[in-house]
Design a protein around this nucleic acid. Sequence first.
DNA 1: GGCATCCCTTTATGGGGTAAAGTATTAAGG
DNA 2: CCTTAATACTTTACCCCATAAAGGGATGCC
Lengths: 306, 306
Amino acid sequence: MGVFAGQGDPAWSMAMLWRPPSTGPARTGPGPKPALSLDAIVRAAIEVADRDGLAGLSMRAVGERLGRTAMALYTYVPGKEELLDLMYDGAHAELPGGYGPGEGWRAGIGRWAADLGAFYLRHPWTLQVSHSRPALGPHEQGVVENLVGILRETGLPATALRRIVGVLIHFVRGTAQTIAEARLAATATGVSDEEWWSARSAQLHQVVPDFNARFPMSAWLGEEGLREEGLREDGPGEKGLRESGLGEDGLRERAASGTGPDEGCDEDASVPYLEREARAMIETGLAVLLDGIEAATLRASRRARP
Amino acid sequence: MGVFAGQGDPAWSMAMLWRPPSTGPARTGPGPKPALSLDAIVRAAIEVADRDGLAGLSMRAVGERLGRTAMALYTYVPGKEELLDLMYDGAHAELPGGYGPGEGWRAGIGRWAADLGAFYLRHPWTLQVSHSRPALGPHEQGVVENLVGILRETGLPATALRRIVGVLIHFVRGTAQTIAEARLAATATGVSDEEWWSARSAQLHQVVPDFNARFPMSAWLGEEGLREEGLREDGPGEKGLRESGLGEDGLRERAASGTGPDEGCDEDASVPYLEREARAMIETGLAVLLDGIEAATLRASRRARP
DNA sequence: GGCATCCCTTTATGGGGTAAAGTATTAAGG
DNA sequence: CCTTAATACTTTACCCCATAAAGGGATGCC
């Protein structure tokens, strides 16, 4: 159950992250040929983290997966923290590029958010790695590059744009975290999310019988929300979802068609309740954000030529 | 460097989190009187985490602070995970309530966000505790309750509102995380953020000489951003900041006037560069979010009576 | 062949969470 | 007052972790 703050030796991490690709096995001179490689180690570590989470990520586990001892890794990596830096950026390599202009920034952001969200769900451990660490790699930078490319269409000034970039990244990360933890709870306890949440809800009302009195707003939110869902009437604030390229199964499809070498993310046929809810949250939230960005854009152009 | 996924025994955590306050020392019967208490342990653990971060939080450390061994704690707490559940909610106890109506929802959300952000900065370790864990306590619930109370003024339907709640919480958390890590890097290396970032930037351009060619959008963002800041012209997208109650020093003031028993958060006189930047991000981001919420509200009322 | 070089293993150290067993302290019952 | 049983806390021990230090064995150059 370990997570890191991104310490270690940033200089080493930076150098390795940005080293020219496939710096060949140009090893000459005495001594045995290296059987491992930095890339192989990083790949193995990502696989371990995908399977067992960051809690299961130990130098022993990674070494074992490569048929070596834990100490063998230290020939290639100074320590675990630096390895995590490389894992984090390396995983991002599977994110697609090609957010060319022509689809409009609203749709572009929708696609970008769906891709990134699906990536987080394919590698939930990335959500536990603290963001905005010192060591920034090329693939993480690529995510930002893509988003900035899309957002430039809005014509917003750079200062505002940079901040919006932060907002969007935090938003997708946070939402993906909610989904990931729901999945984790579901698989850990062996019940479906729906059962799990209703059980927890029942327990809450048993432990706190006066919940509705102490938290009237939250109680209203829960009850009214259920009522609305029962009525199946589309509330407002839901607009712009299809427009943004995020249909009912947009995120889901992207999650299933992973580009990376991983085994996929054990999608089962039934769409879990909470996951649907969280996906709806990403859609609504994104719609809100997009409307806000649009408002800023309008204000900017109005100011430019009054 | 430990963080948790929120495992442990949720039933125990829930029971303790919601137990009636100050369940007295009604111990009768044989055996020595307990010298510790659950509250004292949680308080001590929070102090340790405030000082040394989650990395420095060990059962041994908490026990030592109370003049006991690590094992002594196990009389009161089943394990470290459960203790963390209690710490997390316990820290939230210092958040204020009283977001009465009358100031308007925009200003209300601004105040709510500033209070929550300042709280995160006073207890940065809370940002490493993964959110939306199984065990939800009364004080975390209070944060949601406050926000829902404010948002009900918008008249938005519950479904949309619940999702906006998630967006706002993720947003404040993410932003606070950025600030917190900037602080951490600054104190860890002993240099100011500004020096630290320029050093890192120089290193990046040394390691990656062709950065600007490979990441033209990001390069543009950086250069244009600097140019705009040099011009000191308020870009658009900045509107609504004062209106939302978030002045230049709004967050800062709140951070300094902590309500909890902690020592404050060693604010020094010079406002660090990156922190200013991050605060600006919270302001801009919030403005975008508020505009988006407003758009949803308008749409809702338009739909209600056409 | 000698030998320096380098990959990898073995062994060891210190720290973590916590199980198990031991010790001391108390109140109740005789 | 003495026994008994319950309880708070300590001691010890175990296993897992990251990693320092030292050793072993393969390899290519002289």
